[in-house]
Design a protein around this nucleic acid. Sequence first.
DNA 1: TTACAAGTTTGTAATGATTACAATTATATG
DNA 2: CATATAATTGTAATCATTACAAACTTGTAA
Lengths: 143, 143
Amino acid sequence: MLNINNIISKDYLSSKNIKPSFARIKIFEYLSNNHIHPTIDEIYHALIDEIPTLSKTTVYNTMKIFIDNKLVKLVSIEDTETRYDINVQIHGHFKCESCGKIYDFNVDLHNLLTDDLNGYNIHEKNIYFKGICNTCSNNSNTN
Amino acid sequence: MLNINNIISKDYLSSKNIKPSFARIKIFEYLSNNHIHPTIDEIYHALIDEIPTLSKTTVYNTMKIFIDNKLVKLVSIEDTETRYDINVQIHGHFKCESCGKIYDFNVDLHNLLTDDLNGYNIHEKNIYFKGICNTCSNNSNTN
DNA sequence: TTACAAGTTTGTAATGATTACAATTATATG
DNA sequence: CATATAATTGTAATCATTACAAACTTGTAA
């Protein structure tokens, strides 16, 4: 049942001081292969067939460990849904109000610092936009 | 019981097509006078002495109306707490991980647009940082 | 003033995400 | 193989938010 990806994920988790259990490897690989900023529920349903004994508590526990060890970042766009992002580089999120998809976009946050934060110790920068994505705009145009 | 602020708030709500009921005026004035990005709970507790019959449902209802009519903006920084901001101009938020306070800062988001969002229709821009604020940094230095 | 309609407020119950926790299961090591 | 340690699971508890129906207010018109 071992394969290259499995070994790589295993080693990667180990290198981050996370014991590479079966569930953790599978959850990590799901996040790596699906950059869709999933919710706990989406992760759970995506894996329940492959891991029939999986519980949501395990998904919660695992995401907490991943966040604490900076493997993933929490995405707070809507107050109603907590999402997770395997891409921990600084980048922006665009949430489409029509289809609900969240897109990544590149953004350079270096040159927008203001004097207002002089003396402040910044640990984390987040930026997100909302609107209508390209695809949804085009669909409504052709109606 | 009428005063200048009361009249102004009343007229302002009316001008936004919101019936200026007593609760709505008081909630609006609380937000105007306290730029602390309060939670529902904070608003409720701040006003319960003045409006003993106030219910949290009313605070929820009122905030929904204010948001729909663009008098306030929702602030999603933590997934665990929904906050509200009377300042609807584009600006950044800095949340201190030590004292929990949320500071406003000015930011010019015009020049950070990337090609990634060409064709996207942007309705709303949000930016927030996390870290340790000036005050908390200084306090820990003097220990 | 009174009656009425429309809108507002309230309290309670329902929902749904998240967390706490104890029991069970898996894993690694000697 | 035995044991200790850690991971996983299921259930119950918690907490914010929403749904909803009843009660209350307000403005208007007779």
